[in-house]
């Protein structure tokens, strides 16, 4: 119970490491204490931005924190280089969503489980590879070597799948 709640305090370490590896060179190594420290930094950053956004929201006597409040907080706190591309992103997001966005919000509040549905779909693909399947059950994000093994195997698989969608059909007769 306590462990579950403690883990809930932070972003999942696998996601954190994935973004770090996207930026860092392939040969870069990250120590375990650096991973844990970054996890704490990310959580603190969320609290920092959210508190600032909420403060502005309350000052204007509004109850719900909006994306504008978040952008304003980022600019005020010295992360203005993020705010501009993020505002463009939100603008595009609103255009593409249109009416479905409002419907989605209503459904999201009514049934939060809906948000979890699309996430289950990508999981159906990893079973294609036995090694991948094994890793799914014994997956340990903190294990750096194991993580790399998954990267290499699924990387090749992903390439084949993404490059030629008909490859799946061809495999059946073989």
């Amino acid at each position: 119970m306590a462990g579950v709640r403690e883990q809930d305090q932070y972003m999942p370490i696998a996601n954190v490491i994935r973004i770090m590896r996207r930026i860092l060179p392939a040969h870069a190594k990250i120590s375990d204490d650096a991973k844990e420290t970054i996890q704490e930094c990310v959580s603190e950053y969320i609290s920092f931005i959210t508190a600032e956004a909420n403060e502005r929201c309350q000052r204007e006597q509004r109850k719900t924190v909006t994306a504008e409040d978040v952008l304003w907080a980022m600019e005020k706190l010295g992360f203005d280089n993020y705010a501009h591309p993020l505002s463009l992103y939100l603008h595009r997001y609103r255009k593409t969503e249109g009416e479905p966005a409002s419907a989605r919000r209503a459904s999201a509040s009514a049934s939060p489980s809906m948000q979890m549905h699309p996430r289950t779909h990508p999981h159906s693909h990893p079973p294609n590879y036995s090694h991948h399947g094994f890793g799914m059950f014994d997956f340990d994000p903190s294990s750096q070597g194991f993580y790399r093994d998954d990267a290499s195997s699924s990387g090749s698989g992903g390439f084949v799948a993404s490059f030629d969608p008909y490859a799946n059909i061809k495999r059946d007769p073989l």
């Binding site: 696998a14 490491i17 994935r18 999981h123 890793g135 994000p141 998954d150």
Partner: peptide, 8 residues
């Protein structure tokens, strides 16, 4: 599971 899905 997410890190694996990202690879595709």
């Amino acid at each position: 599971e997410t890190p694996k899905t990202e690879k595709k």
